[in-house]
């Protein structure tokens, strides 16, 4: 089966279950809103009467932020000039993927992030359960039924993934950077060292994406093959990828490219818009919501396309065996 047909079928499958997107979006929105409301009141209390509100409305107040930053770890300190730019904010988040510095924006956000991770694991069960279901129509009750049914397996996969990522972040990557530092220590051009560091980032990104792909297939294997063990599903996912390296990697990279293009397009738009007036800000906020929705849709496409690819590849293997 070709990558493109898996993608096409995945998109069709996703389209059939399009109601999952607003459901996940609502979870994302309310999770963020739960923090944004106290954040707003905190910010309001601090700035509503102060002259800095003019600077904040026009752009940003470095004066206010410097004093705030010095003050400690209020949730407000995660507000920073970078949020004024689409690209900088997106890359800040990408940096987390590459460095594992999840507490960089404070423990509160990290704790909420972990909770969201658990909830996402739960929702993933519903998503893949529905994709794998022969009936192929969306039903909220069946979605949550699948989510609940697979939750313990999915959380086991997530925890296994977290262990592997931790090993990467805390053991492999420091060693890799140490190696780069030693290797480039005597180089006389910082431009060359810059490129070397950049290459190291790419290696890391590649490893992170590879593990993510394995875990995606593990979830698919677990549901499609009705596996009883999360670890066995991971093992089978690895075997599947090794058996179909070109297709699985190609499909994943194609989907990643689409996700990257979506993010870059959004970032460029936000950077270009400069939210200085209230009306422009409202447009930016709406665009942000559209972007998040699109991003969730893209994430689901990963599952749908990979699910289709897996099923087709397995059915081909079975046919061949029969022959």
């Amino acid at each position: 089966m070709s990558i493109l047909s898996a993608l096409r079928e995945g998109l069709a499958l996703n389209q059939k279950h399009i109601k999952i997107v607003p459901l996940i979006y609502a979870v994302n929105f309310f999770f963020a809103l739960a923090l944004a409301v106290p954040f707003f009141f905190n910010l309001f209390e601090q700035t509503a009467r102060l002259g800095v509100r003019d600077d904040l409305l026009r752009g940003f107040s470095v004066e206010w932020w410097s004093t705030l930053e010095l003050g400690g770890d209020s949730i407000l300190t995660s507000l920073r000039p970078a949020l004024a730019s689409g690209f900088a904010a997106l890359f800040d988040n990408l940096q987390l993927l590459l460095t594992g510095e999840f507490t960089a924006f404070g423990w509160w956000l990290f704790a909420f992030g972990l909770l969201y991770l658990v909830v996402s694991s739960f929702l993933n069960g519903g998503v893949i359960g529905l994709y794998a279901d022969e009936k192929r129509t969306f039903s909220t009750s069946r979605f949550f039924s699948f989510a609940g049914f697979y939750f313990h397996h999915f959380i086991a996969i997530t925890m296994t993934a977290m262990l592997i990522y931790s090993a990467l972040y805390f053991l492999l990557f420091p060693a890799l950077y140490g190696l780069v530092e030693t290797w480039t220590g005597s180089w006389s051009s910082f431009r060359a060292v810059w490129w070397m560091n950049f290459a190291a980032f790419f290696v890391i990104l590649g490893l992170v994406l590879l593990i993510n792909m394995v875990m995606d297939y593990a979830k698919i294997v677990l549901v499609v093959e009705k596996q009883e063990s999360a670890w066995m599903a991971i093992y089978k996912a690895v075997r599947f990828i090794l058996a179909h390296p070109g297709g699985s990697l190609g499909l994943y990279l194609l989907l990643s490219g689409m996700a990257f293009a979506l993010s870059a397009g959004f970032a460029a738009l936000i950077t270009w818009l400069h939210p200085k007036q209230v009306l422009v800000f409202l447009i930016v906020f709406t665009l942000q919501q559209v972007f998040i929705t699109a991003k969730i849709y893209m994430r689901l496409n990963f599952y749908a396309a990979q699910h289709q690819y897996y099923r087709q590849a397995q059915s081909t293997v079975r046919k061949l065996r029969k022959v």
């Binding site: 994302n28 904040l56 658990v118 942000q288 919501q289």
Partner: peptide
């Protein structure tokens, strides 16, 4: 008091946070 600045930055912050949560979902 005026809430425009707080509203603007809370909104931008929330958008960033939603994206951050989606980054966390990558690991799920």
């Amino acid at each position: 008091s005026d809430s425009s600045a707080a509203l603007k930055w809370s909104g931008l912050w929330m958008g960033w946070l939603q994206h951050l949560f989606e980054v966390m979902a990558f690991f799920s």
